[in-house]
Amino acid sequence: MKITIASGKGGTGKTTISTNLSSYLAIGADVVLADLDVEEPNSKLFIEGDLVFEKACDKRVPRWIKEECTLCGKCEEVCRFNAVIKVGDEILIFPELCHSCYACSELCPTGSLPMIPQKIGELKHFKTENLDFVEGRLDIGEEQAVPLISQVIEYVDEKFSQDTIKLFDAPPGTSCPVIEASRGSDFVILVTEPTPFGLNDLKLAVETMRVLCQKFGVVINRHGIGDNSIEEYCNAEGIPIIAKIPNDRRVAELYSKGELIYPKIQEFETALKQIAEFVGGIK
């Protein structure tokens, strides 16, 4: 079972829900949580565990072999991403801009640009008492999140059995990284809050899920703080509302310290139970 937790906008409580839900589910099942918000991975702040595995993640970028090069300029001409630039009698490579399309390398008439691995970030695997946690962290300045996200997903798929519940904490927004994080999942939980901002961003996220033909449902966080427009929208669109988490200042306080919420707040635990039951019924 693979579940992605996403949200149209940042700050809706996506990380709070994924860290708490994974810990809660881990009481009675094998669970792994993967933080795919590789540009701003924050889940680790809420999870204490021992590092059991780490590795550098690569993408392939060209390397210039000066001796073979005739400075014909074909590489610069075919690169759509400004990652290969001919300056005087040098070919400069800007790995952060490279999309690893291989065009420069394979279209080079003299084979002067072999593709070599270049580090873009790290994958870390932690173990707590009953939960596995995997995190991808993109190096600062690196712009390609997707290759790292797919490597983290791959690691999780290989390492854990079919019976393990796999939770993926997606990056915010509706762009390529979110799509990468949602595509292979059995179900996507969209976390939103009951305000006009929340609704505006939820609509974008719903549109994305529909184009991907992805099954999804909504969790309303901070319920009671705003209006009913999210519920009205979901009802009109036939989108299941999985749980409503009541607004509570104590949640914000626990979050601010990086603590888990459900062991201390009953209503929060009830909401997690509803999510767990809903998810359990999907299969």
């Binding site: 991403f81 400004n82 990652a83 630039i85 300056v87 005087g88 800007f94 801009l97 712009e143």
Partner: peptide, 15 residues
């Protein structure tokens, strides 16, 4: 019209 790497092409012009 470039999404990324505008600075590199500009630098090339200056060079």
């Amino acid at each position: 019209t470039m999404e990324h790497g505008a600075g590199l092409q500009a630098a090339k012009k200056v060079l």
